[in-house]
Amino acid sequence: MHPETLAIYQNRPDDANAGAVAPPITLSTTFERDADGSFPHGHVYARTSNPNRNALETALAQLEGGFAGLAFSSGQAATLTLLLALRPGDHVLIGDDAYHGTPALLEELFHPWGLTYTRVDMTNLEAVRSSIHENTRLIWIETPSNPLLKIADIQAIADLAHEAGAWCACDNTWATPILQRPLDLGCDVVMHSTTKYIGGHSDVLSGTLIFREDNELYHRVRRYQLIGGAVAAPFDSWLLLRGIKTLATRVKTQSATARAVAEFLSRHPAVEVVHYPGLESHPGFAIAQKQMLLCGAMLSVQIRDGAEAAVRVAGQVRIFTRATSLGGIESLIEHRASVEGPNTTTPQNLLRMSIGLEHADDLIADLDQALFHAKPL
């Protein structure tokens, strides 16, 4: 089935009690044994499994074309649990432009524990190849990257990882399984902050790991999920299953609007550069065309007159909301460097935008007036 059909078909509940079309929420934390001590429905305790979380994990695996999915309490919890499956002394390769929370995990939690890591430009395959060590066990791709929207060649990097005996994981949050399926391109694991597009309404915190096949890595991470307990809650799982049903429609509409906004900004004299892989001027345009259906609904711009001008632009918007996060139905804008803090590598004049479901003409008009009114007196 196509992803649009799977999103609906896989979500159909099997409700023997009422025949409900929408799945019921199972909030119970514990489940009754039969007289012989067995568990007839397969559930023991909510940390181990829950009907809503099981349904979510199955749906996510189906969408990404994977063997199995694991749902966590946040995207960070998912990433942390995957890194826990490595061993002290292992080496991780990660992009030089990645969600700032991922290298923070490596530096603050795992480096003292014994993991080493290297940051590299994932768009440069020779740099990736030369950065692989004998003890490299994981190559972590993020494409499009956050916040510069660099495009990495997933299949080529997965091949390099496997040649070195390493696993390859991809943060697919910005693309979603509707626009890009890294497992089909050779990745072993896909991570999503399902808080973003999969939830889609800025009202649920969760994350997932989806595995291509039944292997040692999957079983290790599954065990750590059970022991660590950072699992998605029943109501969060229910909200995410509801979000999946409209994922394809939302993401395709948002992507089309983002392209229109990016084209407008690329022509604006106050804009230094637009980072959007759907523009032919983008360095990763050709690779994006090869591995993505559409180029997504995220973009970033660098304002010509510097950091203060960028902050003024964000301060003048009326339809966009000044807020962190992305992937919801509302359009968001933020001065990214100030969010990431003093150690950021993000350009100080950069604004990151998450395009929602508003009309493209209205968003363009809002940015146009903001850019005009933000000019220095």
Rank of each mutant, 00 (worst) to 15 (best):
T5L: 15
L6D: 02
I8H: 14
P13V: 08
D14N: 15
N17A: 14
A18C: 11
A18G: 13
P24W: 08
I25F: 03
T26R: 12
T26G: 00
T26Q: 11
L27W: 11
A35Y: 04
G37T: 07
S38L: 04
P40Q: 03
V44Y: 05
R47N: 09
T48N: 10
S49Q: 10
N52L: 04
R53T: 08
A55Y: 02
L56D: 06
Q62H: 11
Q62S: 11
E64I: 00
G66V: 04
S74T: 14
A78H: 08
A78G: 05
G89V: 07
H91G: 02
I94S: 00
I94F: 02
G95T: 00
D96F: 01
Y99T: 12
G101S: 05
G101D: 00
A104S: 10
L105M: 09
L106E: 01
L106C: 01
L106G: 04
E108H: 13
L115K: 08
T118P: 00
T118F: 02
E126H: 11
A127W: 00
S131M: 07
E134T: 13
N135L: 10
T136D: 06
W140T: 03
W140H: 15
I141G: 06
E142H: 09
S145V: 06
P147F: 05
P147L: 02
P147I: 04
D153W: 06
I157G: 05
I157R: 11
D159S: 05
E163W: 00
W167R: 15
W174T: 03
W174K: 12
A175W: 09
I178N: 02
Q180P: 00
P182F: 13
L183N: 11
D188R: 07
V189W: 05
M191W: 06
H192Y: 14
S193W: 07
T194I: 12
T194Y: 02
G200A: 05
D203G: 08
V204P: 00
V204Y: 01
I210N: 12
F211V: 07
E213Q: 15
D214L: 10
E216P: 02
R222V: 00
I227V: 15
G229Y: 09
S237I: 04
S237Q: 07
W238G: 01
G243H: 03
I244A: 04
T246I: 09
A248S: 12
K252N: 12
T253A: 07
V261I: 15
E263F: 05
L265Q: 09
L265H: 05
R267L: 11
V271T: 05
E272T: 06
H275Q: 07
S281E: 14
G284P: 10
A286S: 14
A288N: 12
K290G: 00
Q291M: 12
M292I: 04
M298V: 01
Q302H: 03
A307H: 10
A309W: 01
V311G: 02
R312D: 13
A314C: 15
I319M: 08
G327E: 03
G327N: 09
E334N: 06
E334R: 03
S338H: 10
V339S: 12
N343K: 13
T345L: 13
P347Q: 07
L351D: 04
E358F: 01
H359A: 06
D361E: 13
L363H: 07
D368W: 01
Q369Y: 03
L377D: 06
